[in-house]
């Protein structure tokens, strides 16, 4: 009660200064980066980058083909069925195959070995096993192949550590029609119960011919 008047006048100002100073100190304290981040940055220096492809195995493709009944090919393509080297339309026996790959530049024997149907055939005539199909695909798709070898393309199976097992190209791509086909998505999130469904609609940035937009109603 007996504080000098001048000092009392200072109380609000002092309190404001104290708050600001406290806030600044606090902000510094909570934003200082964690040491773990720093350590990680150092560990990530490019000097230790692995340049060689990681060792890997490709999941065997043949068991699936066998199950499918199309392998071994030699069961039909034996001595009794001589190879006709003339390029022609898809024979009836392989009617399920719609060859779109290559845009008309390929036919069967571009990739399949004429003499031994149980293997594929590279550009230099070298045989390539069905289980190593990435070697065949990579002849043209060499950038993809590089991504595949290092892990940026394709799909690792089972484990992120230890032995690296990769899915073969044809587990995702149809070799005769490799692009991934559009299909129906899994349904959208439902909003929390008790709230009415509200949907966002807005004009697209780039107008594209749409095939009728079914997303107006839900």
């Amino acid at each position: 009660m007996n504080v000098p008047r001048r000092l009392r006048l200072l109380v609000p100002q002092l309190s404001a200064v104290a708050i600001v100073a406290g806030a600044v100190a606090f902000a510094f304290k909570v934003t200082s980066p964690t040491s773990q981040v720093e350590a990680e940055r150092e560990a990530a220096s490019p000097a230790v980058v692995a340049r060689k492809p990681l060792p890997f195995t490709v999941q065997a493709r043949l068991p699936q083909l066998e199950e499918h009944g199309t392998f071994p090919c030699k069961e039909c393509h034996d001595e009794s069925l001589p190879t006709d080297p003339k390029e022609r339309a898809m024979p009836e026996d392989h009617g399920d195959i719609d060859l779109k790959h290559g845009g008309g530049r390929f036919w069967c024997l571009t990739c399949h070995d004429a003499d031994n149907r149980d293997v594929l055939r590279g550009l230099k005539g070298q045989p390539i096993a069905f289980d190593e199909q990435f070697l065949l695909c990579g002849q043209c798709h060499f950038r993809r192949q590089r991504d595949f070898l290092f892990g940026a393309h394709g799909k690792r199976i089972g484990s992120w550590q230890g032995e690296r097992v990769l899915a073969p190209c044809t587990s995702c791509h149809d070799a005769h029609d490799p692009s991934i086909k559009p299909r129906k998505p899994y349904r959208a999130d439902r909003l929390r119960e008790g709230l009415r469904t509200e949907r966002r609609t807005h004009a697209p940035l780039i107008e594209t011919p749409s095939q009728g937009s079914p997303d107006e109603q839900r």
Partner: peptide, 20 residues
Amino acid sequence: PTGARVFGNLLDPASEIRWV
């Protein structure tokens, strides 16, 4: 279904995620 995802150990210089 499209293999769009890459997961791994950031501290392993030989990991796929590090290559990406």
